[in-house]
Nucleic acid binder design. Sequence first.
DNA 1: AGCCAGGCTACCG
DNA 2: CGGTAGCATGGC
Length: 229
Amino acid sequence: MTTKMENEIRLIYNKLYNLYGPQGWWPLLSVDVSTEKGVEMVHHPLNYDLPQTRNETYEIILGTILTQNTAWNSAEIALRNLKALKAINPEKLLDLDSEIFKQAIRSAGFVNQKSVYIKEVTKFYIGLDGTIPTRKELLEVKGVGNETADSILLYAFKQSEFVVDTYTKRIFSHIGLIDYNDNYNKVKNLFETNLSQDLIIYNEYHALIVQHAKKYYSRKPYGVNDPLF
DNA sequence: AGCCAGGCTACCG
DNA sequence: CGGTAGCATGGC
């Protein structure tokens, strides 16, 4: 049984994928490869086997906090600073001098908050001891809200949790499939009930929404010349 | 110059 | 409870 909504949600996914192709999320410095042009690649299209190591998983968790209400580029600079300090490792990060740590992540903004959040989530990650956290457990960590919890579960732990962000709300309220003020779980539920529970689709869909929204929904009025309709 | 960025917490009524 | 001010810094 295919509902109309399911057609809409899947149709938009197909259109976005045809427009932009596989996105290679979550970006990882660990698989950084320098191209001929000297451009560093942090995305890894069609490779769904990442993260592979404890530190790669940790890098994604760091990125989810650093990019909160912040352009990815600013978060990436912070990650590169941490990498230079060899601190993309939970124990080593906690060992950093507090001021050096803050200086390293300053580019990502909200340093006073994010420095606390990162230490909290780092202790939580160490405490997991290799196990996969529940959504509820993640939400109990200070600094981890709905979107961050789902990003961590989907991209760091390969769990089928759909990620909703402001861009998702902007695009789909503009299309008319949701109200902008619908709460997080309602929107998340819409996607999860109308898509097959497929890690690759969840992964690409959120990444494609971000890509598309950066282009057509980052400045008011939103959605002008959106080729989706 | 001013708006925007891949949110979250704490506090307000 | 649902709504929102405040939080920091960098890019354009």
